[in-house]
Amino acid sequence: QKEELKEKAKEAVKRGNKDKARELLKRAGISEEEAKKIIKKIE
């Protein structure tokens, strides 16, 4: 489940939808700070 949400978040970032990505990562139980780092890494 968590990995699936991370994959979806990756796709969202690639489409330029960072808010959606952050939302998905939060749903995966990832903190706001972690989510920001992950999104930065994907960009």
Rank of each mutant, 00 (worst) to 15 (best):
I42H: 05
A21C: 10
K8M: 15
K14V: 08
V13N: 02
R27K: 09
K41G: 11
L5H: 03
N17T: 03
E7G: 05
E32W: 08
I42M: 12
K41W: 14
R22K: 10
K6I: 15
I38D: 00
R22C: 14
K36W: 14
V13R: 03
E34C: 11
L24T: 00
V13K: 02
K20F: 13
K20Q: 12
I30P: 00
D19P: 06
K36R: 12
R27A: 10
I39D: 00
K6F: 15
K20G: 07
E7I: 09
K36P: 02
I30R: 01
E43G: 05
K41C: 14
I30M: 11
K40F: 14
L5C: 05
V13E: 01
G16C: 09
I30C: 14
K41M: 14
I30S: 02
K8V: 04
I42V: 08
K37N: 11
Q1A: 12
V13D: 01
K10Q: 06
R22D: 04
K20R: 10
K20E: 15
E3I: 07
D19A: 12
E4W: 15
A9N: 02
A9T: 03
A9F: 05
A28I: 04
A9W: 06
I30A: 04
E34H: 05
I39Y: 04
K40D: 15
K40Y: 15
A9R: 00
K14G: 05
K20L: 15
E4C: 15
E32C: 06
A28H: 03
I39F: 05
Q1S: 14
K37C: 13
E11T: 06
K10R: 14
N17V: 03
A9I: 14
K37T: 09
E7M: 11
R15F: 07
K40N: 12
K8Q: 14
K41H: 10
K6W: 15
R22Q: 08
E7Y: 09
K10Y: 13
R22L: 15
K2Y: 14
E32D: 13
E43A: 07
L5N: 03
E11Y: 05
I38M: 09
K37V: 11
I30K: 02
A28G: 04
K2F: 15
K36D: 15
A9Y: 04
A35G: 03
K20M: 12
G29L: 01
R22H: 10
R22I: 15
R15H: 10
G16S: 03
L25T: 00
G29K: 01
K26I: 14
A35W: 04
K2A: 12
K2W: 15
A28F: 04
E23Q: 08
I38N: 01
K40P: 01
K2T: 12
A28M: 06
K14H: 10
E4R: 12
A35K: 01
A9H: 01
L24S: 00
K8S: 06
E34S: 04
I39E: 01
A12F: 12
E33D: 09
E23D: 08
E11F: 04
K26C: 11
E3D: 09
A9M: 03
L24P: 00
L25M: 03
E11Q: 10
K2C: 14
I30F: 15
I39H: 00
A35N: 00
R22T: 08
E4H: 10
G29F: 01
A12Q: 09
E34N: 05
A35Y: 04
K26A: 13
I38R: 01
E4M: 12
L24A: 01
I39R: 01
V13I: 12
Q1L: 14
L25G: 01
K40W: 15
K20P: 00
E11N: 06
R27Y: 04
A28Q: 02
S31V: 03
K26F: 08
I42S: 04
A21D: 00
K40G: 09
I39T: 01
V13G: 02
E3A: 09
K10M: 11
K26Y: 09
E23G: 04
K14M: 14
L24W: 05
R22N: 07
A12K: 02
V13F: 09
K2D: 10
E33T: 07
R15M: 13
R15I: 08
I42R: 02
E11M: 10
G16D: 02
A28E: 00
E33L: 07
V13L: 12
E34L: 06
K36N: 15
L5I: 06
I39V: 04
A21G: 01
I30D: 00
E43T: 06
K8H: 06
R22A: 10
A12H: 09
I42C: 05
K18E: 06
I30H: 06
E3Y: 08
E33N: 06
E34I: 06
